[in-house]
Structures are given as C-alpha cells and as structure tokens.
Write a protein that binds this DNA or RNA. Sequence first.
DNA 1: CGGTCTATAATTTTT
DNA 2: TTATAGACCG
Length: 670
Amino acid sequence: MAGFRLFDLNPEQQKAVLTTDGPLLILAGAGTGKTRVITSRVAYLISEGVSPSNILAVTFTNKAAKEMRERLAAMVEKSAASKVLMSTFHALCVRILRSGIEHLGYKNNFSIYDEGDQLGLIKKIITRTAAQDEKLDPHLAKNLISKAKNNGWREPAPGEEKSLVGAVFARYQAELKTLNAVDFDDLLLLAVQLLEEHEVVRRKWQDRFHYLMVDEFQDTNRLQLRLITQLADERKNVAVVGDDDQSIYGWRGAEVTNILEFESHFPNPTVVKLEQNYRSTNAILQTANILIRNNPRRRVKNLWSAQEGGSKVRLIAMPDDRQEAQFIGDDIQNLQMTEGVKWEDFAVLFRMNSQIRLVEQVLRQLKIPYKVVGGKSFFDRREVKDLLAYASCLLNTDDDVSLLRIINTPARGLSPSLVEQATAHSSRMRSSVWNALRDAAFQAGLTTRSRTAVQAFVGLVDRYETLLNQPLSDQPALLREMIEEVGYLEDLRRTCKTPEEGLSRENNVKDLLKSFDEYGEKSSEGLRGFLDEMMLRQEREEEDEDDKGSGVWLITLHAAKGLEFPYVYLAGLEEGVIPHDRSKMEGTVDEERRLLYVGITRAKRNLAITWCQQRIKFGSVTPCNLSSFAKELPAEFVEQKSLVQMQNTPVSAESAKSRFEAMLAMISKL
DNA sequence: CGGTCTATAATTTTT
DNA sequence: TTATAGACCG
C-alpha cells in the first residue's frame, strides 16, 4: 500500500480531490491524469472517514473498472479498497435488478440477452408480425428499439404502435417479460424504472451510496443520467469526470448535453478544469487545441504541457493508399532500427476498419509484429454461446432463446419441425417453450417417438436444475457433468471441418469451464453470478495473455480513446474519410472533429498524419481531397510535405537520424 | 433442405 | 473489393 500523496497532484487535481461534497464537475482534458484523480479522490474520502462501502464509482467498460480497482488497491488498505463498488453501469444495474426486479413483474432469476439473442428474438417476432408484403430489417429494428429504449421508452411512442416497428417493439418487450429475460438496454431502463417508481428500493440504494463518481461522463446517455440522478439523494454528492471534446459516441446514444448542461441537472456544482497535460509535447497539444476550437458548443479548455517544443506534426501527402501504407511501414521500421523504439510504442490510427488491411499487409511483408485491436469476440463463438445457453436454461427454464439454442444440440431427436410445434404451442399458451414442452396437451399430440425425446429432454433439464438448486451443490462440477452426459464435446468435434478447429473450440469450452471453477472459488454468487459476469463481459479477446503482447497497434480512432502511444500515425486525413461522408448528411461533423482531436491527443511525442491523392474504394480507384480539417491545423506546429518531395531529398550516407535532421534543417530554411 | 448464385451496400462499438 | 442476405435450383 503506497498510500496517496496530495502533494503529488497539481493544484487543480487537488481541488478535484478535496472537493468531496455537493455536485462536482471535473473537466478532464486528454492526458490530464483523470484516473489518478478519481482514485485519489476515493482514497481521500476513505482517509476522511467515509465508509468505503458508501462509495460508488461507475465506468463504461470493465477494463476501466478493473484499472480503477487496481489503482485504488495500491493506495488504500486492501480490505477498504474491496468494499468500494467500482462497477460498470450495466453491472450496477444487474445488481439493482437482481434485488428488486420482482416489483416490475419479472423474476429475479432473469436471463440477460446479448445482441445476438436480441436479434434472434426480433427476427422471430418480425416473421410472426409482418404481413406478407411487409419487410423489416431485423438489424434496423433492433437499432430503432434500442434507441427508443435508451431514450426511456418502454413501449412504442403514441402513434407508433400501429407501424410495424412499433408493433414489433411492443411484442418484443412483452415476449422478453414472458421469457423472464432482459436485454442490455433493459438493464438500464428497468433499473431506472425500479428506482423511479419504487421509493423503498430507491431509498435503499440512496442509503447505500453517499458518494457517487462517474467516469467518462461525456459518454452517458439519458438513461444513465437518470440513473445517477435517482441514486443521488438530497446530499447530491455526485462527482462526474469527463471531456466534452472527447465525446465520440453520439451515434450510439451518448448525450454531450449531459456534460454541457451539467448545471441544469445538478445545480451549483463546483467546476474544476484539469488542463495540464502530462502526455504530449506542446507541438502536438497545440495542434489539437487549435483544431478543437472550431467546435461550437463546448466547454472551453486550454491544454498545456510542460514538455516544451517537440518535433512538429507531419502532414504528408501520399500519391495513393498503397504508398501511404508502405510509408508508414518503412517509417516505423526506420525508427525502430535507428532509435530502438519498441514495436508497441507505435500506433497507426484509422477512421475505418477497412483502412487497416493495407497497412497490415505491409507490416507482414516487413516482418514487423502488429496487433489489430477489435475483431472477433470470444462470445460470438458458437461453443461458448452453447455452453452459456445450457447454463442459462438451468437457471431460468423460461429463457426460450437459450432453450431453443440447445434443445437439439447435440441432436437428441427434437427435430426443427417438432421445435416449431412447441414454439407455436407456447404462443397459444402465452407461455414459455419450456412450459409448452411439459404441457400434457402438447405431448398428447406427438408421436410416441417424439414424446419420448421430449420427455427425455425435460427430464434432463429438470434433473440438473434440481441438483443445481440444492444448497452447497458443486455447480461447476454439475455443469461439467451435464455437458459430459449430453456428449457435447464429441458433437462439437464431429461438426468441425478441421481437427485444429475442433481442438480450438474444445479448448474454449474447457477454458470456460475452468474459469467457472475459478469463479466458484472466489465468489459465492454461483452460476448466476458467473453468467452475469460473462454476459456483461463481452470484451474483445486480445492482449489477454500470450504472444500477442508486443507489436505495432493497428486501431480505429474510436478504439484508441483512452490509450496513448509515443509514435502515432494517423492515416487517411481525407474529405469523406474524416469527416466521414455520412457525417455530413447526419450533421455530425463536430463529432468527427472530436474524433480527430482524440486521435491527435493519443500521441506522446511524434505524430504523422497522412492523406492520399487517390485511394481504392470498393475496388476502384477514387480521387481524394485533403480533409477540410487540415485547414484548421496550425502551420506553426504542423509541417506539410509530400512523399514525392521527401523521396527527392538528397540522402547522405549517414544514418536515417541525421537524414531526418538534415531534412528538418532544410525545411526550416524554406 | 442445402448449397450456390446474384444483388446490394458499404463508419465508428461497449454492455 | 468483400460481406451478407435473399433468391433460386438440384
């Protein structure tokens, strides 16, 4: 326990830490030590005698929550640190709902549906709801429903009920309730409803938390603000930390106005601006500052850095995207060789995933290790979803989506047509498929063979459900046993095309079972808690362990938020890429500017921005123009050149470093 | 029913 | 160019 030392913080940071009571708005610019301030503030509260269990810190991602927990653990006593609740919005809502959702007519063993489950259910409802000539894209429907829910709608808006989307929305919500399931949006929506409508519950939670802290406040949506408002009692000890200039998630419901109009939600707040940046050189920082000044409606900030000077930002014109990629690869290799920069100190930032490919190819050719951030989720994997579905069924047999997923996996004589009959019967009964399967009237209409199969399945689930619910049952062992009994692994192996694929899938299953074992050892929440955690932890599987540790980062601007790198390349500063063509139609050019701002402020000491005169789009060569944002960059800190120019520069026989210096000298003469 | 073909569209992504 | 969805055919 290193403790925390106030005198390590700058005056503004200190003010943020020492202001404990009443609403507090901490405007934390990029690289100004935000996490440090939050954790120090928690440590300070504890040192002032606040009970750790009365403190709540909310974040967006599990990663952020974890990092905060770790940092806090280094500052205060372990026992105290573990009592502070540091949680994501969604995990907090699960907690609230598990202990009170019955007020809303759900059972507290509700299942949590992820996007895939959600989509499946919506598809089913669309086919049942749409007339012959009507069509509705399930993805579109899902997005619309999600948007509506994030704006607080629990049912279609008046006038919307008769439209197809409206009808699907209404049925979808009703169906979820029958299945005793909630989707990610419901977690927030229902938690807010519960707190707003049930005073007992609200009191209980207000009583629990006396000090609230919210990270990345610029990313909160309406529901999240309402949740915070409900949790804050008359004490209003709400400290929010954020940076409106880094609000880049408007398209998924984030309301910048939450931070811009903080005063109207929490009157008379203390406002602290953190403007000293500890990350970048002034050249980089001023470039970012001057760019972002072009945005209307923002909290004016002026970031500064004690790291005077620094090399200018390079803005380089490239003939085309291939040469852009080649340049980036060469430049990285050069710097690595001449200056010994580590691979993981380089990052290449992109507006779109599709841009990544070319650079990836070049790096592969140059044998430069790299890692692409993003990509396939562990949870999209069939076998993982299957296993979680088995678990979910045991805990909530009414969970149709999970039940249907595993009902004939592995094959056990429950054919799709039989399942279809069961589903139809469940609709008639207005009940779950599980209840339909057990219904005598349903079974009576089946062939002997089908009936036997149904009864066997019902028996199986019943048996394990009972075992699992016995106090002191060894749940991880039971799940394992069930998987074994149904012959899941054999089936998995059989359905894989290659033995390698089979092996890797099998390992995924084993890993999952193992992590359940481990979870069981450190937690008493059992399978329920484990499943909740798995559902809410859909994080990408990267940097986890193994070899992937080191390498050049290839990453989108969005995914790069919160990260920092000594050497940054920002590829594709073209009109249409950033700002993206779409943004002009949608009127979100400001957000694109913020996105560029986020990109620039990722760089610690070196930033190269490139753009192409032409680029291959959708297979054909398309001419491109320099982004309109380029005009907004300050000439004082940005040097413009072109690849051709650089290639024509006379090259000495000396090292690349002196070549670079010669170039600098030459440019300063111009 | 399942595989193959053709039309279509094309940011950003966490929980 | 490439991914995906729906149509179409064996």
